[in-house]
Design a protein around this nucleic acid. Structure first.
Length: 264
DNA sequence: CTCAGTGTTCAGTG
DNA sequence: TCACTGAACACTGA
């Protein structure tokens, strides 16, 4: 479930559990797609013996700050995740990279669908792909005027603009739908046709939704009861808590759950 | 067996 | 070059 809040959660977990510790063992599962051609030997060579100083995230990318460069940068794609465990016997399926720390903690990056990425970069924050990202609504929420100006420049449906990582980094399919639901805006509307009031709603709701999702460590059972998230996955005959029908359409190339009775 | 999917990138078009 | 659209990528699980 890797959008901004889920990735932030993983960062916090790794920081809490492993920062200050040294990587004593590295297991790399060869995968030309996920590693983009970087050899297992190179990956282990760069990571083994390094101390994990801190973790950083922007949008859906996160990276490990080590005591020597390069640093590993991760993207979860659709199905990537990091598991924490204590013994190699607990290795998850689809493991791509396992780091073992000096206190015995194992961190395993897994990815079933292979759309995730692991790179080694000298300065992840200041080179692509990270430096091409737009506002991170958690670290640097844009001002209202900024949001309004941004939207006026785009003719694509608002849903597609919310998903554009060059604009709002970290918003994914469910966050975009949640924001538009709570802001009461039809996902198909052209961004440049939205009013300042609409922009204000998007601005406010985006901050509120992202803050809450991060605050509860992206644990969906702790999302507020009125959120679309809880009812959007059923697909057929899905309804909101108040009995409004949820419709599914394709916008911006993605399945979009919305409530026509409420979103105008 | 078929198909959708919490994402990104690239080719093609205007 | 830019904005936008749709398909490709790869594979699991329903």
């Amino acid at each position: 479930m890797p959008e901004l809040a889920e990735v932030e959660h993983v960062c916090r977990l790794l920081r809490r559990e492993a920062a200050g510790h040294v990587i004593t063992d590295v297991s790399v599962v060869e995968d030309s797609i996920v590693y983009g051609g970087v050899s297992p030997r190179t990956v282990s060579g760069r990571l083994k013996g390094r101390m994990l100083v801190d973790l950083h995230r922007r949008g859906k990318y996160f990276w490990m700050e080590l005591d020597r460069r390069p640093w590993p940068l991760f993207h979860f794609g659709m199905t990537g995740w990091v598991d924490i465990y204590r013994a190699a016997s607990e290795r998850p399926r689809f493991l791509k990279l396992e780091l073992v720390f000096d206190h015995g903690l194992h961190a395993g990056f897994r990815d079933a669908r292979r759309l995730g990425r692991i790179k080694l970069l000298d300065d992840p924050a200041h080179e692509p792909p990270v430096n091409r990202l737009g506002f991170d609504p958690w670290h640097n929420p844009p001002a209202l005027a900024e949001v309004y100006a941004l939207l006026r420049r785009r003719k694509a449906p608002i849903k597609a603009v919310l998903l554009d990582q060059k604009v709002f980094a970290g918003i994914g399919n469910w966050l975009a739908d949640e924001i538009l639901f709570q802001a009461r805006i039809d996902p198909r509307r052209r961004a440049d046709m939205l009013s300042e009031t609409d922009a204000r709603a998007i601005h406010r709701v985006m901050k509120r939704v992202v803050r809450k999702a991060v605050e509860v460590d992206a644990d969906d059972s702790r999302f507020p009861p009125g959120w679309l998230f809880h009812v959007r996955w059923g697909r057929k005959n899905a309804q909101t808590r108040d009995g409004h029908t949820i419709r599914y359409i394709e916008v911006g190339g993605r399945t979009t759950a919305w409530v026509p009775a409420l979103q105008k």
